[in-house]
Simulated assay, not measured.
Amino acid sequence: MALQHRTVLLNEAVQALRIQPDGHYVDGTFGRGGHSRAILARLGPAGRLTVFDKDPQAIEVAQALAAQDARVTVRHEGFAALAGLPPASLDGILLDLGVSSPQLDDAARGFSFRHDGPLDMRMDPTRGISAAEWLATATVAEMTEVIRDYGEERFAAQIAKAIDRRRQARGPVRTTAELAEIVAGAVKTREPGKDPATRTFQAVRIHVNAELEELQQALDASLSVLRPRGRLVVISFHSLEDRLVKRFLQRHARAAVDRRAPMVEPPPPCFAEVARTLPTAAEVAANPRARSAVMRSATRTAAPAPRPQGGR
């Protein structure tokens, strides 16, 4: 049975943005618009909301919303495109990472081993190569690296070799059921309550969509596009994403000392008020997808003064 899509940490995320009625905000992952609609409800007539999404189905929903609300601008691209926005133009950025329930429940998208379908996994099926295309050409070493690093799978080498044996014997892996079967045969022990294909599907999806690279680009862009006192809010659903966000905020929440000039007062940190928020027990009980969610938020500090160039 398909799970009804419920926006995770809806109220907490919107509250963390500290919305100003006339501010300009970004929802970097529009999805089905839960966060966006809550943001719009707090914006005044002069407020603006720019939404990004790779998924054509999400973009259709976003465009319908924009047709009814002139405050909304829709961008059919990933949130790494934040880097193209004017400097100091945003009062808040919200990134709700991962795959939505509608994407998982649509067998044609190929995200889930629970529904047999074409092995696609692209957030935007109109661009890039599918999971099946990548698995058809990747070397055993490449597959091992991706499954190990992005899936944190200790049987990565065995799974990669099993995929290669299947390619040699019967041709490329085409469907989600075929990949799940291969993984099940290669993974010798299973975590209680978790399908053996979980980590491999996660790893291939992250690689095909360059998810961690895009997240890092968006985080770096936030340093430029957020105004002083602007808010960054990121909801993660697995440890790789959360670790990347955590380290980024830790790095930029402390003053950077120039070792070449230790007596010079360092510029102020780029972020302050760094916080971590978890779903309540009630939300997890009502929405199992919230179980692994972690929200991190921070405030952009005043931009440091530019260092003098040469001179006396």
Rank of each mutant, 00 (worst) to 15 (best):
Q168M: 07
A169N: 01
A169M: 03
R170M: 15
R170D: 13
P172D: 05
V173I: 11
R174Y: 10
T176W: 08
E178K: 15
A180I: 08
A180W: 11
E181L: 12
I182N: 04
I182Y: 02
V183P: 01
A186V: 00
A186R: 07
K188A: 08
K188P: 05
K188M: 13
T189H: 03
R190C: 02
E191Q: 15
G193T: 02
K194G: 00
K194F: 04
P196N: 12
A197H: 14
T198K: 10
R199I: 00
T200K: 12
F201T: 03
F201H: 06
R205H: 12
I206F: 13
I206L: 08
H207N: 07
V208W: 06
N209E: 06
A210V: 07
E211Y: 13
E211C: 07
L219W: 02
S222C: 09
L226E: 13
L226A: 00
R229Y: 12
G230Q: 11
L240P: 14
L240G: 00
D242Y: 11
D242S: 08
R243G: 09
R243Q: 13
R243P: 04
K246D: 03
L249R: 13
Q250K: 15
H252Y: 13
A253G: 10
D258M: 07
R260I: 02
P262Q: 02
P262C: 03
E265I: 10
P266F: 02
P267H: 11
